[in-house]
Design a binder for these strands. Structure first.
Length: 200
DNA sequence: CCCTCTTTTCCGCCCGTTGG
DNA sequence: CCAACGGGCGGAAAAGAGGG
């Protein structure tokens, strides 16, 4: 099983959660870290947790709040070179999200031996040429690749779609269909193998 | 629920200047 | 006279706060 999390920066906002293996089993939202930990601990045979949030700091930056000119990790620079747009981790609310992501990764890894990876739905959408905010197109893509059923009883939110994108990236990761950006000693970002476009 | 403002950074584009 | 370089400006990216 894999778990996709579209992490919010604050516990007052909704975090998208997607539980899947070959297909999506459940999609919902939660708010507190405590609830996320509960979900993680209850899933049997959980292999990978894929989180949409920065899970590391650039080398040369000890603290996220420190004001210095280091704003990017190697994986961020590689993303930039691929012309995939994203917000720097030092931008306003992103600082909060980064702190929460790093802390959550630590909590999950201390819980049991689960691989926690950083992912980015925006990169998945760009690689597969789906408009990032077009829920209809995103839904159609996941139906086409056989990850979700054609009918869903409820309209899903953007947070939930993003969590599905995280879970899908985790599934590709287990199938060795992903690319690891950056340096493992600093922290890496897992994205779908770009050459998959058109073959999936 | 929705909208608007703010945050940081880089890229792309246009225009002006400069040097060959 | 024209190409090449560079500076300035606008836009885009994710998310929270605050107000409707």
């Amino acid at each position: 099983m894999v778990l996709g999390l579209d992490l919010a920066g604050s516990e007052n906002r909704k975090t998208g959660v997607c539980i899947a293996d070959k297909k999506v089993k459940d999609v919902f939202t939660v708010k507190k870290d405590e609830e996320i930990i509960k979900v993680v601990s209850e899933i049997k045979n959980l292999k990978v947790v894929a989180i949409d949030a920065p899970l590391s700091l650039p080398k040369g930056r000890k603290n996220i709040d420190e004001k210095n000119s280091t704003h990017f990790r190697e994986c961020d620079i590689e993303l930039m070179r691929m012309k995939i747009k994203f917000f720097p981790i030092t931008l306003g609310p992103m600082r909060m999200l980064t702190k929460r992501g790093i802390e959550l990764k630590r909590k999950i890894e201390s819980l049991k031996n689960i691989r926690v990876i950083e992912v980015f739905p925006g990169a998945l959408y760009d690689i597969f040429k789906i408009p990032r905010k077009d829920k209809k197109k995103i839904f159609e893509f996941f139906v086409k690749v056989g990850f979700i059923a054609e009918k869903h009883e409820r309209e899903l939110s953007q947070d939930e779609f993003d969590s599905i994108a995280c879970a899908f990236t985790a599934k590709l990761f287990l199938e060795n269909k992903t690319k690891e950006l950056g340096n493992p000693s600093e922290g890496t970002l897992i994205i779908p193998e770009p050459s998959l476009f058109g073959f999936i």
